[in-house]
Design a protein around this nucleic acid. Structure first.
Lengths: 196, 196
DNA sequence: TAGCTTGTTGAGCGTTGCTCAGCAAGCCGG
DNA sequence: CCGGCTTGCTGAGCAACGCTCAACAAGCTA
């Protein structure tokens, strides 16, 4: 009956899968305001209404937790960008590009946090993004009917970097119309891809 | 005469300027192996042979310290890239590009750590790099005799992103000759700059 | 010698990542 | 109903790290 012996919330018991999903979800919600690596176990546990210890029951250490969050964010984007099955190859890249711009426009903060977290320090996080980039290159190379060699991959990845940067700053300060932006990106891609 | 009362090294007293420079220098030396934000005060102080407290005498907090380190790294690169006074405008960009590739080849690890630290999370650090990029754009726009508007700046900055990515991956895996690389970068720049 | 400036330190506090021993809720076989 | 198993879950506590503070000490000047 003492205050200390009565938990403020009745303890909620969940299945392992539910709990894991909940924790990752909380990480996703925190992502726009906090760089992944700066998510504190304390904060996440508090939001989930559980003890710090429990988080370590599901994720061996902090890194494993925030890479899981990063992977979840990457998967969301990946699913959004992937062309619908049956789309003719010549339309695939244009469609992905269009959806990418839409993605950045809609989830500006989250996407920025995601890209930053990926670029910044931690190899485990950046690997997740590298992997996503690489899968996008696979799709693009196939759609453009280009051979898959090291040079071509480097060029496409560099074009991604160009695109990310430009779309990001354009979303902040629209210096041209949306169609003009898409046109420019497609044009640069064509030029870059044409170089052997 | 007891061991605890006798310091292992005779305490070294320095002027404020010297000490600050030494601490920043240590940060620069650690940069290749450690993301800036993960530099620990303990480690730096240990290498300098001073107490943790002293570091906080020169830098109000950790952030202020590693932004100072970042700024030092940025300045080194900036001085290396800046065209010699008297260089004709049409040669300036090519020269800077050439020196940039050389810089990445020579200081591969440091530069990677620098770029990553700049891209990753911390606004204070990324601001330092943004500033360096911005100054480079100033020089490039002047050398190319292009008007300095928002669109042009965005395009040049995006081309920087393209260049950084490509030069980085090329240094890892040279898929073409150095002149071919430079040629490609100049070509893409010309195409991008030509778009109004 | 006294006093000032300033480079320097050690003790210690709060936060955060992480460990560990053990509680408790549900389920089973007897 | 009971003992025992699994498993979700917690609290106490440690180590590392950022950061504060009161005070010491080295050199200068009056």
């Amino acid at each position: 009956m003492t205050a200390s012996s009565r938990p403020t919330h009745p303890r909620e018991r969940r299945t392992a899968g539910d709990r894991r999903a909940q924790l990752v979800q909380i990480g996703l919600e925190l992502l726009p305001t906090t760089p992944v690596q700066e998510l504190t176990i304390d904060e996440v546990a508090r939001r989930a209404g559980i003890s710090r210890s429990l988080l370590f029951h599901y994720f061996a250490n902090k890194r494993e937790y925030y890479t899981a969050v990063t992977r979840a964010a990457a998967d969301l984007m990946w699913e959004h960008l992937l062309p619908a099955p049956g789309t003719p190859p010549e339309e695939q890249v244009a469609g992905m590009l269009d959806r990418y711009v839409g993605w950045v426009e809609t989830f500006r903060e989250t996407h920025l946090a995601f890209v930053r977290g990926a670029a910044g320090g931690d190899p485990w996080v950046s690997e997740v993004y590298q992997e996503t980039r690489s899968r996008l290159v696979d799709v693009a190379l196939a759609a453009l009917e280009l051979p898959d060699d090291a040079l071509r991959r480097q060029l496409l990845l560099a074009w991604f970097a160009f695109t990310e940067d430009l779309v990001g700053s354009w979303a902040d300060e629209p210096t041209m119309t949306r169609p003009e932006l898409l046109d420019l990106l497609r044009d640069v891609l064509a030029r870059v891809a044409a170089r052997s």
